[in-house]
Amino acid sequence: MKLNGKVAIITGSASGIGRGMALAMAKEGAHVAIVDVNEEKGKETLAEIRVHTEGMLFIKDITVQENITQIVEEVVKKFGKLDILVNNAHVSKQVLFNETTQEHFDLSFNTGFYPTVRFMQAAYPELKKNKGKVINFASGAGIDGQVTQTAYAAAKEAIRAITRVTANEWGPDHININLISPIALTPGVEQWKQQHAPEAYDAMVNKIPLRRLGDPENDIGKVAVFLASEDSNYITGQTILVDGGSIKLH
């Protein structure tokens, strides 16, 4: 039980990669607070978590600062501490660069970048007290410059930048801050597969050296468990590519 007795907040955890991480951490003994806007899926994931450990569910808009502060306070009130923060939630729209507007940037930064900043700031006192772990999320969209991903890529690279800064600033406080850049078979990818020709999906998979998409729990979730555990105590400020070998950083 690598995370026995630890307390985690995971944003965007009602489904997809967030759900996979929540289940992986719960099975390793962590108490998990689910943060999402999808109440139905959130309740389903909470029920799955409670098979293994204790959990909480927050159906909150994390673009609102007061909601972030409230979530952190209520988690600490219930469990007495906070050890792990996972900033996974992010919404964006795909359009070509020349069609990208201020609204596209606002959507991406307000749902991804700014909540990451605000959750980290709100959680800092508890993370410092408990030598905590922060897991932020990067994307191949930013690292590799994927077309139609201007606003999303910009926000993800901004998250990578503040992760490196805080890794330096918070290192003396024994807080580890790392990033996961994933590729996974999520409900959104499944929907895309159904909407497009199977050939397009197969072509995408065939570009991945391991020839498959990652499993949200068994692939992405287990790396998140590693980064949240004492096994990663000497790793900070790093981007961990959990993408089947799609991108190789040099």
Rank of each mutant, 00 (worst) to 15 (best):
D36H: 07
V37S: 06
V37A: 01
V37T: 06
N38W: 12
E39A: 15
G42T: 05
K43W: 10
E44G: 07
E44V: 04
E44S: 12
E44M: 10
E44K: 13
A47H: 03
A47C: 04
A47E: 14
E48F: 14
R50N: 15
V51T: 11
V51W: 12
H52N: 15
H52S: 02
T53L: 02
E54H: 13
E54F: 09
E54L: 08
G55C: 07
F58K: 05
F58E: 10
I59H: 04
I59C: 14
I59K: 11
D61G: 06
D61T: 00
D61Y: 07
D61S: 06
D61A: 05
I62A: 02
T63L: 12
T63N: 06
V64N: 01
V64H: 04
Q65R: 14
Q65L: 06
Q65H: 13
E66G: 01
N67L: 06
T69H: 09
T69W: 03
Q70F: 10
Q70P: 00
I71T: 11
E74W: 07
E74Y: 06
V75C: 08
K77H: 08
K78I: 00
K78N: 01
G80E: 08
G80T: 00
K81H: 14
K81Y: 05
K81F: 05
D83N: 15
D83T: 02
D83Q: 11
I84A: 07
I84D: 03
L85D: 06
L85K: 10
L85M: 13
N87M: 06
N87I: 01
A89K: 04
A89Q: 05
A89T: 02
H90Y: 12
S92F: 14
K93Y: 04
Q94I: 01
V95E: 01
V95Y: 03
V95M: 06
V95D: 00
F97G: 05
N98P: 01
E99T: 03
T101P: 11
Q102H: 10
Q102Y: 13
Q102M: 12
H104D: 15
F105P: 05
F105M: 13
D106S: 09
D106N: 10
L107T: 12
L107R: 12
L107I: 13
S108V: 03
F109P: 05
N110D: 13
N110M: 10
N110G: 03
T111S: 09
Y114I: 04
P115G: 04
T116Y: 02
T116K: 07
V117E: 03
V117S: 06
V117M: 10
R118F: 13
R118T: 00
F119E: 04
M120F: 03
Q121K: 15
A123I: 04
Y124E: 06
Y124K: 05
P125Q: 07
E126M: 12
E126V: 07
